[in-house]
């Protein structure tokens, strides 16, 4: 074996080891969920999932809480997605296409808001939401989440709009399409992949979000899965198999959709957050 052959073989081994490390915890979540009580505390751990235990995934849904959590997460995430896109599309379009008074200021604002930790705004948002009755509501969480997705998604979409030649829009204007009509009928369809990627990013921000949900939601029927699942941490009465099964069910949609959209999400995130 020559030196360069050796290097490329070694590189391949390392890269597969890295990939293995990256997915092992998820694999382990699944293995744990399907381990029987007897094997759980045996002298040598069970290393592969046992298919006879797959019933656990049906079991966790029999209890109402898990279903409610996931449904709540879905509503919050979907709401965050819709609101984010509704605000970010016009904002990103204006940033890509038009000069306007205060553009630099708004740009700096969008940059600075990306630096604000959620934890810093928990208290003031709590005190704003409290008199408006937005605590213990989906709306409150959707409003808070969107404030954090909006800056990033705006940049992603701005960069996408930048790639659409102005001539296409001029052609649309000559064809009789003006204003919002040209945006909706001609420009948006061109950048659909970026819009879809943005939707996925916003959705999973809402799906994953924890701090606001923890602080704003005290009513159990409104709790999303992030808070519900976090409740298992440090708690010992629920069997670990059930906890891990819920973890798998909660993680799966996020990972699956990311994988489907990964090409667009990665380039979008790279362009949006990095260049932004």
């Amino acid at each position: 074996m020559t030196r360069s052959e050796f290097i490329s073989h070694a590189a391949l081994v390392i890269i597969f080891v890295l990939a293995g490390l990256a997915i092992f915890p998820f694999y382990w979540m699944f293995v744990t969920a399907t381990t029987s009580d007897a094997n759980m505390f045996a002298a040598s751990p069970q290393l592969v999932p046992s298919l006879s235990q797959l019933g656990i995934f049906a079991q966790i849904f029999e209890e109402g809480a898990v279903k409610t959590w996931l449904a709540n997460s879905f509503i919050i995430a979907a709401g965050t997605t819709v609101l984010t896109l509704a605000l970010a599309i016009p904002l990103g379009y204006a940033f890509a296409r038009f000069p306007f008074w205060g553009k630099a200021g708004v740009g700096i604002g969008l940059l600075v808001t990306q630096m604000l930790p959620e934890a810093v705004l928990v208290v003031p948002l709590f005190s704003i939401f409290s008199p408006l009755g937005l605590l213990n509501s989906y709306a409150g969480l959707i409003l808070a989440n969107t404030a954090f997705t909006l800056p990033v998604i705006t940049w992603i979409l701005k960069n996408a709009f930048d790639t659409v030649p102005v001539e296409i829009e001029e052609a649309a204007v000559l064809d009789g399409c003006t204003g919002i009509n040209a945006l909706v009928r001609v420009v948006l369809p061109v950048i659909m992949p970026s819009v879809a990627a943005s939707a996925v990013i916003a959705f999973f921000h809402g799906w994953n979000e924890y701090v606001f949900a923890l602080t704003f939601i005290t009513n159990d029927t409104l709790k999303p899965a992030s808070v519900g699942l976090a409740g298992f941490i440090g708690e010992i009465s629920t069997p670990i198999q059930s906890v891990m099964a819920v973890g798998v069910v909660y993680t799966l949609p996020a990972v699956a959709l990311y994988l489907l959209m990964q090409r667009f999400i990665v380039s979008g995130m790279a362009a949006g957050s990095v260049k932004g």
Binding site: F26, W207, Y210, A225, S226, A230, M244
Partner: peptide, 17 residues
Amino acid sequence: SLIIIPWAAPPVAIALV
């Protein structure tokens, strides 16, 4: 695709596992 998975996963699930 495998390598990107950790980044896609929810922090709560990661902390848990």
